[in-house]
């Protein structure tokens, strides 16, 4: 099983489209309302980062399975400026858009697995997975 679909993020409205896609897929996997809301919040956050800092990029949603475990993977990629200091943006209390409880640490908390690859000046790929329990 490897269903994938994606949304290009260019305008702010594409954030909503990415959320919608994420919610549909999350429902399809069998996530409850709370986890659906967590996954879509994570997607919002990732898509917003692309929109604000990279200008454009892509959100890909993948249904995945590992043994008996089913899950949903969100991959956010862009060819933006990259992140100079990953450790800093992963720190609590550090957020450039100035809100509490959001940013990349928020995404990490909302999801189960979190991986970030970034090359300064070339772009960023973040993948985050939530497993169905």
């Amino acid at each position: 099983m490897n269903l994938r679909s994606s949304v290009d993020i260019i305008t702010e409205w594409d954030i909503v489209a990415a959320r919608q896609l994420g919610r549909n897929e999350a429902k399809d996997v069998g996530f409850g309302t709370v986890d659906q809301a967590r996954i879509t919040t994570a997607i919002s956050e990732l898509a917003r980062n692309i929109y604000l800092y990279a200008g454009k990029g892509n959100i890909e949603i993948k249904q995945i399975a590992e043994g008996n475990l089913k899950g949903l993977q969100v991959i956010a990629s862009d060819k933006g400026p990259g992140i100079a200091d990953v450790r800093k943006v992963m720190e609590d209390g550090f957020t450039t858009s100035g809100g509490l409880g959001a940013g990349l640490p928020g995404v990490k908390r909302l999801m189960d697995d979190f991986k970030i690859e970034t090359v300064f000046g070339e772009g960023t790929v973040i993948s985050a997975t939530k497993w169905l329990r």
Binding site: T33, A37, T41, D92, L100, G101, P105, L110
Partner: peptide, 21 residues
Amino acid sequence: FDLLIEVMIRYGLALKEHQTL
């Protein structure tokens, strides 16, 4: 309630961040 759940997600995050800090 689904809307309320959506609204509360960030409160939950803020709480967790607070605990970590």
